[in-house]
Simulated scan of single mutants.
Amino acid sequence: MRNLKGVKVLLVDDEPHIIQFLELGLSNEGFEIRTAHDGMTAVNLASTFRPHIVVLDVMMPGIDGWEVCRLLKKELSNVSIIMLTAKDEVEDRVKGLTIGADDYVVKPFSFEELLARIGARLRNQFPALFGEVSYGPFCIDDRRKEISYQGQVLDLSPTEHELLKYLLINHGIVLSKTTILDQVWGYDFGGEENIVEVYIRSLREKLNDKEHRLIRTLRGAGYRVDLP
């Protein structure tokens, strides 16, 4: 991901070695970093630092990550929060989405995965930082709400646009149907998971992806976009 000067990231975790590891890595990527080791410090710091991204641990002494997330979403009009969770429980994910979390990463995680998710959140929530963004043969123009493939603007419905955009900005990451439903349709969507299959099939037809080389199906896991 291209270095983005001026992008602010707040790291919140009570484990010093995690903070040190992430601060070093993200600073080297060009981000402006602030750190906090407890929830109240994070809330107070965020009000002056005004971060674009908050990487927030769930389990902390005092105010836990859920409450910090709720307070930050109330305090800041436009902030993206990535929760760090110790286990991949549906209840935790739903709770986080309900109170405003934008994404979550399960510990232990790789730095590359977190960096990819930060990039995805920035492109999704702060498109003005990027303008047109290219991914292999694709180009997303958020100002025009268009996606081009091999130089041709695709004829997409609003939902197809959001789904393809989500797949592209998370390229290389396996996305389950449940995750896609949460992020594209919303956590309160009351329909069936197979709606994802219907829209994936439609996208493949419009991309002439008959052999599923662009949008791959990983049986039992979900979908992954592989860019040439």
Rank of each mutant, 00 (worst) to 15 (best):
S148E: 08
T179P: 00
R34V: 11
K206R: 07
L175M: 15
L56M: 13
I63A: 01
K177P: 01
E197L: 07
C139N: 12
P51F: 08
L122H: 10
F130R: 10
G172Y: 08
A221I: 00
S148W: 02
Y135T: 04
E132M: 13
L214M: 09
P127D: 09
L115Q: 14
I118S: 08
R34P: 00
T159K: 13
K206C: 01
R93E: 10
V79A: 09
K177Q: 15
F49N: 12
T178W: 00
G172W: 03
Q183C: 11
V58Y: 03
L24I: 06
E132F: 03
E146K: 14
V225T: 11
P108K: 01
H17F: 03
P51N: 07
E91S: 14
E205P: 00
K107N: 02
V58K: 08
Q183A: 15
L4C: 01
F126P: 05
N44I: 11
P127Y: 12
I147H: 10
V43A: 09
V184I: 06
D88M: 09
A86Y: 02
N170W: 03
L56D: 01
R224T: 14
I53V: 13
K210E: 12
A116T: 13
L76K: 10
T85H: 07
P16L: 02
Y187N: 06
E91V: 12
L214Y: 13
D182K: 09
K87D: 03
F111I: 12
K74Y: 04
I33H: 08
K73W: 03
I180V: 14
D155G: 01
F31R: 06
